[in-house]
Amino acid sequence: MKTAILSDVHANLEALSACMAHARRQGAARFAFLGDLVGYGADPLACLDLIRGEVARGGLAVRGNHDDAALGGLCEDFNFIARDSAYWTRAQLGAAEREFLAALPLQQRDGDALYVHASAADPAAWEYITGLLAARRCLAATDAAIVFAGHVHQPLLFYTSGDGVKSFGARSGVAVPLSARRRWLALLGAAGQPRDGNPAAAYALFDAAARQLTQHRVPYDHATAARKILAAGLPAMLARRLAYGE
């Protein structure tokens, strides 16, 4: 079975729809969402509607720090722009959306795979995996053979090698076999707010039978997503960055 995995949708309906359509064409049977479903983008309700539908159909979803922020709290560790958008998002959510987000687990196990937003090592600490050490901590915290995580908005694959951990930047569209004798940490790029210089939405397709992971980049209508952000009165920088993937 093929699972399409999307991280950091960030209420970007155009990116979410484009990725879902692409994944369906690639034969995805279900969807998994790695958190940060909302925040930054202008379409939290429409995105949550789509995501809830997929979860009801056997999909998976975990909670991210921006989902937490949309539910309440002071967001003290957020920068001003992120905080503004969190407060805006709070005002949009209805009871049903709040209930859905609040019920999401921080991590979810599915067979020998673990889905988490930031890191399996203390998921609620929202640690950014920016190097081999953090990747190693994440893998050490779980016995899952494969960990899927997001949060950093930059795709990178980590795997165990002897006593250490190595990293590998896979090209999009290339199926990488995840050898069963190693453990893997797949950091996914962001669907709704790419930051690696490429404005195309990122998601990955995991083929459990073949044990292969393919990262995809999907061009989408980021101009419309940006217009909606401006129209909603959200910080202009959140609209601008979508065009550059920064």
């Binding site: 090698s161 002897g162 896979a170 050898s179």
Partner: peptide, 13 residues
């Protein structure tokens, strides 16, 4: 050219 280089990793270790 598009896959992890396990042979090099092992030798490096």
């Amino acid at each position: 050219g598009e896959l992890p280089d396990f042979a090099a990793d092992a030798a490096d270790g």
